[in-house]
Structures are given as structure tokens and as C-alpha cells.
Design a protein around this nucleic acid. Structure first.
Length: 520
RNA sequence: GCUCCCGUGGUGUAGUCCGGUUAAUCAUUCCGGCCUUUCGAGCCGGCGACCCGGGUUCAAAUCCCGGCGGGAGCACCA
């Protein structure tokens, strides 16, 4: 066994591949197709007939949690050659903001998601009113004029209130008044469920309430708005969604969902839940993030420490990495906290073949090589991929990182990577060395360097926003150093690899380039 | 408090519905080796898990009961 391993290891990579091709070509083939992780099959699904939907509320920027839902919905639609609907669940005019309809579309487009149909729930209020009236006429819904506190208490105790006994005529009358004179909070439409149900969601949930705020799209056309329970179920059914997904915290509401559709005699979709995605130290909640933005501790919703799509994008996380990550999580209901390095690992694999290589020297120390020959040559921008070349020209002055310098010993020979060897002569505030030949030798330590022709550069290194449940004051560090002038050849926004330092997204070029540390 | 969901190696997942072809999947982390003028990747190898206790059964990660642990809901928010 050990012998076989040794034998295989003694072969070059190409030889190994060749041999594998001979013995078991299917193993290689599998390797290639493996990239796209697959979701488990959908129950009751037929090719061409699956319809899914992503229903965000236009009240903020999309984050990784939304991405999970959107990607799963979208992927399933694709998997079954079905349809994917983008539906803005804009049924609370107090929360919605016109800008987020478009901002969320942008976030989705960035993710590479395309939708077959788009509409707003608020476009269908007329229909919702019709259905509400149907429920009233069937005696399945009633207008409740109790105080919110009383409703809550009765719900807790499982007691019915007298509003429940109202006649259909009375309910119709009050329903009409809800659209006109009744002030907000004065009345709601409730489903006649079961006040003694074990499931508190079934204790006559609210279907419609009065909200007077101006709606970003409907203006002041409506003042009676459906709640999530009503709008969600009705829209899924009416829009032809076959497999709606939602996160686990809605699970108790399933009963309401189906009971409502039953009473309305509407088609029942195959509803499913999955766990919420949470990443350690990167909360998604606006409750936590907003104050930090207001205090100036977080720069905005595209701050690199945030799990918003914009934050991740700015941080140098590729959309494909997000997709693969989400799919790797699947639709399990078990909740857990994922660490960010899972995303980083995927991102690194995607980035590695396309990131150009450069030298960045953090905390530079001067290295003088008095007898250094002047060298001018071209170097590959990537060790194995064909990404082009960069030109270098060197003199007698170099800069190396403090950490490399501190490892040097006098008399030792090291190699300035891609250049030549240097024997260390004197170590002080500066390092002095002597040219020691061009030949590459395996035993020489290879270190990165820049010449006098460099830019000072700052690299911002994000860390966990929250540590131990508290804001991490150390969550944004700056690393100063020198970068080779060749960095000019990349585009702003491009991710490069600073050798032996890490992947860095070039945020800004110029005389003082700015970078964001992506990951090692 | 009540109700619901979940509990597989350090981490995340597959398998659980329809008990047995599973030596329990895959990824990540970690460790060792090969390759390499960086790191990583790649290649080879390794460590490592079915929450606990009962029961049913020839056979249980899988079914049943009871604990324990985690999460969620109990809004006129989604």
C-alpha cells in the first residue's frame, strides 16, 4: 500500500493524469461534471410544469439569506425547465421604499438570476378584496374591532371574542367601512380559525389591516392591506406556483396557509421549508446593522464586513461562489452556523485560475544589493494559466517585508523570487546583501520584493463584524506596504493574488492604490 | 409557559419518508507525502460522526416512546 502511494507520488501530475486516463477514465470525467452541486429532486414535480417564486419585500438590500432562497427557487425552476417568478411582496406601505424594487433587481441580476415573470403583490389588491368578501360571505372571516391588546390576550388564552359572532351583513358593512372611515387600528379582518387550536397561528389570524401610509407604487389608492398569511398563500396559488419555499420560522403558519386556500377553494401548492442561513459573526438583521451604520462604525450596506450581496461583491466574493455555497447547503431544515471560510474556500478555487500574480510587501524594509546586476525581463502573470506578462526592471535597491527580513540570518543565501539570489551580509535597520547568482536552487528560501519603482498601498482586511455577540472593534484592519508598479495594468475591481500574502481586490488604483483583502 | 422544527466527524452536508448491498456520502478544516521559483490549486494518504436511554425487529442513523440540547413561533412585520 505504502509502496503504491510512493510510486504514484513519484510521477508528475501529467503522468498521473495519463495513467488514470488509461485505468479509469470515468473518474476523470466525473471530476469535470462535479462542479455543479445538485439539489435533491422535488416531490410531485414534472418537467416543464414546475413554477417557483422569490418573494422579497422591497424594504432593503438583499443579503446572503435572500440569495439562498432566490438561488434555490431559481435552480429548481431551471432543473425542471419550469418558470421562475419574481414577486415583490409589498403589502406593508409603511416599510416599502420605491428604490428597493430596482436595487433588489440589481442584486438578483448580479447573482446571475433571471426571472420569467415579475409582478407586485400590491397590483392584485382588488382580487384580494374579492376573496376577502368571499370569506366573509361564507362566514369564514369576520371583522374584529377589539383592541390589539385584548386580541393578543385572548389569543394567548384561546378565547373567542364577541366580534366572532357578528352576522355576515354586519361584517360586510364593517369591511366596507374599513376602506373608508374606520381609523387604523380600529378594525381588522380575521380568519375564523380555531381559537383553541394548539397551533397559535390558527387562532383567528389577521388577514387584513388598515395602513394609511402612502404606498410607493399604489399611492393612497388603498388603505386596507393583506397580511403575509393571506397575501402569501393567495399569490402563490393564483400565480401558479407549484413549489413555494420559505424559511423554517414560517412552519407554524403552514396550517393557516392550507386552511385559507381550502376555504377559498384555491389550488394548494407544494409548500416547503428550509433552515435559515446564518454565518458566524456576520448578522443579517437590520436591527443589528442599522445602528452600526448610524454610528459610523459600518460604512453602509455595501460594507465589506456585511453579508449583503453588495458587501460580498465589494469584498471580492464571486457570484458563482455564492451559488455554489448556497447549493452546498441544500434545503436541510437543521439549523447551524456556517463559518465564512466555507465561502472563502469555494471562492479561492474559482479565483485561483483567473487572478494575476503580483508582489506586495507589507511593512517594507530596505534591502541594498550593491553589486546587483540590472535586470530587465518579462514575467508570467500566472504560473500555469495564460494570463499574459508583466515587465520588471531592477536596480540595487529592493524592499522586502519585515516578516521576511526578520527571518534572515547573516551569511544566508535567499532568492528574490523570479530574479536572482542574494547572500545576506548585514542586518540592521536596512538589510545589505551581495549578488549570489541567477541559478534557481530549491534550498533557497524565495521571498517577494519590490524595487524603488513601487506604489505605497493600503490593504483593508475585514474580520468578523461581531465577536462574542458584540461589535468587533478590530473588524477592519489596515495593512500598509509597497506594491509593484505593475499593478497599474489591472482594472479597478479586479481581484489579484499578492503572492504569499493573499487574494486582494483592487478597489482603487493611482499613486496610492487601495485594496481589500479577500482571503488567503 | 405552550406549540412546532431540528440534532450525522472540528465545521457544513448526503442518507432518515420506503429499516438491511454503508467499510455511513461529499465538501471544508487539520495532519503527512508528491509536485511547484509564491501561496493556493492539483495528486496520494491519514485523523475524525449517526445527542442520550429504552423499545419494536433476525436487522435501526433510519420506526416508536422518553429524556437532553439547539432553533423558531405565540404581530394589525414579512
Amino acid at each position: 500500500m505504502v509502496k503504491v502511494v510512493e510510486e504514484v507520488n513519484s510521477l508528475s501530475l501529467a503522468e498521473q493524469k495519463e495513467l488514470l486516463e488509461e485505468i479509469a477514465p470515468e473518474l476523470l470525467a466525473k471530476k469535470k461534471g462535479e462542479k455543479k452541486s445538485k439539489l435533491p429532486p422535488l416531490p410531485d414535480a414534472e418537467r416543464g410544469k414546475v413554477v417557483t417564486r422569490f418573494p422579497p419585500e422591497p424594504n432593503g438590500y438583499l443579503h446572503i439569506g435572500h440569495a439562498k432562497a432566490a438561488i434555490i427557487d431559481y435552480e429548481y425552476a431551471r432543473m425542471y425547465d419550469g418558470k421562475f417568478i419574481l414577486r415583490f411582496d409589498d403589502t406593508n406601505p409603511e416599510n416599502e421604499d420605491i428604490v428597493f424594487y430596482e436595487e433588489q433587481r440589481k442584486d438578483l441580476r448580479w447573482l446571475g438570476i433571471e426571472w420569467d415573470k415579475e409582478y407586485n403583490t400590491s397590483d392584485n389588491l382588488k382580487k384580494h378584496y374579492e376573496l376577502a368578501l368571499q370569506l366573509i360571505n361564507q362566514g369564514d372571516a369576520y371583522v374584529c374591532t377589539c383592541k390589539p391588546r385584548e386580541i393578543k390576550e385572548r389569543r394567548l388564552r384561546g378565547e373567542e371574542c364577541s366580534c366572532r359572532k357578528r352576522s355576515k351583513e354586519e361584517n360586510r358593512e364593517l369591511w366596507k367601512e374599513m376602506h373608508n372611515e374606520i381609523p387604523p387600528g380600529g378594525a381588522i379582518l380575521r380568519l375564523k380559525g380555531d381559537m383553541r387550536s394548539q397551533n397559535t397561528a390558527m387562532r383567528d389570524p389577521t388577514l387584513f389591516r388598515i395602513v394609511e401610509a402612502e404606498h410607493p407604487i399604489q399611492g393612497d389608492k388603498y388603505r386596507v392591506w393583506p397580511t403575509y398569511d393571506f397575501a402569501g398563500a393567495v399569490e402563490d396559488s393564483l400565480s401558479g406556483v407549484t413549489h413555494p419555499f420559505r424559511t423554517k420560522e414560517y412552519e407554524l403558519r403552514d396550517e393557516v396557509y392550507f386552511y385559507l386556500l381550502e376555504k377559498l377553494k384555491l389550488r394548494k401548492p407544494h409548500l416547503m421549508e428550509f433552515s435559515r442561513l446564518s454565518i458566524e459573526g456576520m448578522p443579517v438583521s437590520k436591527r443589528l446593522i442599522k445602528p452600526l451604520i448610524e454610528e459610523g462604525k459600518v460604512k453602509g450596506y455595501d460594507d465589506v464586513r456585511l453579508p449583503t450581496l453588495r458587501g460580498l461583491k465589494r469584498r471580492g466574493i464571486l457570484k458563482e461562489a455564492i451559488r455554489q455555497f448556497v447549493l452546498s447547503q441544500g434545503i436541510s431544515k437543521s439549523e447551524g452556523v456556517v463559518t465564512f471560510d466555507q465561502i472563502e474556500a469555494i471562492n479561492r478555487k474559482l479565483l485561483d485560475p483567473i487572478a494575476k500574480r503580483f508582489f506586495f510587501v507589507p511593512n517594507p524594509i530596505k534591502l541594498i544589493v550593491k553589486d546587483a546586476p540590472s535586470v530587465e525581463k518579462e514575467l508570467r502573470l500566472h504560473p500555469t494559466e495564460d494570463l499574459g506578462y508583466k515587465k520588471i526592471k531592477t536596480g540595487k535597491i529592493f524592499y522586502i517585508s519585515k516578516s521576511d527580513a526578520s527571518n534572515l540570518r547573516e551569511g544566508e543565501t535567499i532568492r528574490l523570487k523570479d530574479l536572482f539570489n542574494v547572500t545576506v551580509e548585514k542586518i540592521g535597520k536596512e538589510v545589505e546583501g551581495r549578488f549570489a547568482g541567477m541559478e534557481v536552487k530549491a534550498e533557497y528560501e524565495k521571498i517577494q520584493w519590490v524595487t524603488e519603482d513601487h506604489f505605497p498601498m493600503i490593504i483593508i482586511k475585514p474580520d468578523l463584524l461581531f465577536k462574542g455577540g458584540k461589535y468587533n472593534e478590530e473588524s477592519l484592519k489596515e495593512i500598509g506596504g509597497f506594491v509593484e508598479r505593475n499593478i497599474e495594468i489591472v482594472k479597478e475591481g479586479e481581484v489579484v493574488q499578492m503572492e504569499r500574502f493573499g487574494f486582494v481586490k483592487i478597489e482603487r488604483l493611482g499613486d496610492r492604490p487601495l485594496g481589500i483583502y479577500v482571503h488567503r
